[in-house]
């Protein structure tokens, strides 16, 4: 197991180099002036830019030099997390990403566990009760979740939770809580407000952050658990048809264990892939849900950056997302290996 993880970690740098290659390649579609945008460090610099300055900067950053030199220079920069200045966010790209990502991470963390747990649980029930009433009911719910556009469902949830009940407002924090969090005494340990709130002993802040999370979580969960459920159900049905299930029954294994020990373990293998995709999708930001609930996540940042052609920010987020994908895939692979010995000992 350890050897497997080490082996996977050893190829990690190569994959990362591949990712930077890819992003760099995409950058070549921009002209030097557009690319130069990624080197501007502050708004002042931007304001006082004359066309000679631009020429000078192009020379200075070597944007007219051979490609491989440019690539090495650029990699050197990103290794130091120097990703340029973002016009849209009015701060360096690094800070823009790092300030939004915790919000996205917090939302993803709270959404992922209910989604996966409920999705697998209902998927197994659905498969075991195949074509009977319980299965039909679960599937109808799943199909609705599956086919409902998130902007419709999200607005509906916002309307119920906030409009009707007035309990769960949009945004990330209430104004008073925002003031607390921005104050000197409030230490930011993780950037996740619920956890920071608890660590600072400000349970009221934690609760406030949690209240703001409810709407997006429900929206994301409902859309995603249908996805997990479908995969679980079909792979569970497949597993239940396998001969080793007959073997298990033939040796007197109780039905509960036949399902949860013998079939489920095998059925989870494809679920891991889908769950991994889902987590990565959530971490990359969920533009529509974030927009509806006015939640300051990375998805909205990326959307704004694209709309306003903020190249440094787009490139920064692309790199960041590439990095996430690589790490995420590594985790998925390790999970595979835990579940399926054939992968581990390959």
């Amino acid at each position: 197991m350890l050897a497997y993880i080490v082996r996977r970690l050893l190829i990690l740098p190569f994959i990362l180099i591949g990712v930077t290659f890819l992003v760099f390649f995409m950058m070549q579609f921009l002209d030097p002036v557009q690319r130069l945008a990624a080197y501007i460090k502050s708004p002042e610099e931007l304001k006082n830019l004359s066309s000679e300055d631009i020429e000078r900067l192009i020379k200075r950053y070597g944007l007219d030099r051979p490609l491989w030199v440019q690539y090495l220079e650029w990699v050197k920069k990103i290794v130091h997390l120097d990703l340029g200045w973002s016009e849209v966010a009015h701060q360096p790209v690094k800070d823009a990403i790092l300030s939004r990502f915790p919000a996205t991470l917090e939302l993803a963390l709270f959404a992922v566990f209910p989604v996966i747990w409920v999705g697998i649980w209902l998927g197994v029930i659905s498969a075991v009760h195949r074509d009977r009433l319980l299965d039909q009911v679960i599937r109808v719910f799943a199909i609705i979740g599956w086919s409902l556009p998130s902007f419709v469902f999200g607005i509906f949830i916002l309307f119920i939770l906030y409009g009707v009940l007035g309990l769960f407002p949009p945004g990330r924090l209430s104004l008073w809580a925002q003031a607390v969090v921005s104050s000197q005494e409030f230490k930011s340990y993780t950037g996740l407000l619920v956890i920071d709130g608890i660590l600072n002993g400000r349970f009221d802040v934690a609760l406030d952050a949690l209240r703001h999370l409810v709407g997006p979580i429900i929206t994301l969960s409902y859309l995603w658990w249908a996805f997990i459920l479908r995969i679980t159900r079909s792979s569970m049905l497949e597993a239940l048809n396998k001969e080793y299930i007959t073997t298990a029954r033939a040796k007197g294994v109780p039905e509960r264990l036949v399902i949860h020990r013998h079939a489920k373990r095998n059925a989870l293998i494809p679920v891991v892939t889908v769950a991994g995709m889902m987590v990565l999708g959530l971490l990359g930001g969920v533009v529509i849900t974030e927009t509806i609930f006015d939640y300051p996540g990375i998805g909205r940042l990326a959307a704004t950056a694209s709309q306003q052609l903020d190249y440094p920010l787009i490139l920064g987020i692309t790199l960041f997302y590439g990095f996430l994908l690589v790490v995420g895939n590594l985790i998925v692979d390790v999970l595979y290996a835990i579940i399926d010995p054939r992968v581990r000992l390959e």
Binding site: K242, E243, Y244, T246, T247, A248, R249, A250, K251, G252, V253, P254, E255, H262, R265, N266, I339, D340, P341, R342
Partner: peptide, 25 residues
């Protein structure tokens, strides 16, 4: 019946590769 299976009557199959669970030792 469950208690009889595997204790008083047991069974082996044609293809042990598919008759054994791949994810358990």
């Amino acid at each position: 019946m469950r208690d009889i299976r595997g204790k008083k009557i047991s069974m082996i199959f044609q293809e042990p590769m598919v008759a054994l669970n791949p994810v358990y030792t």
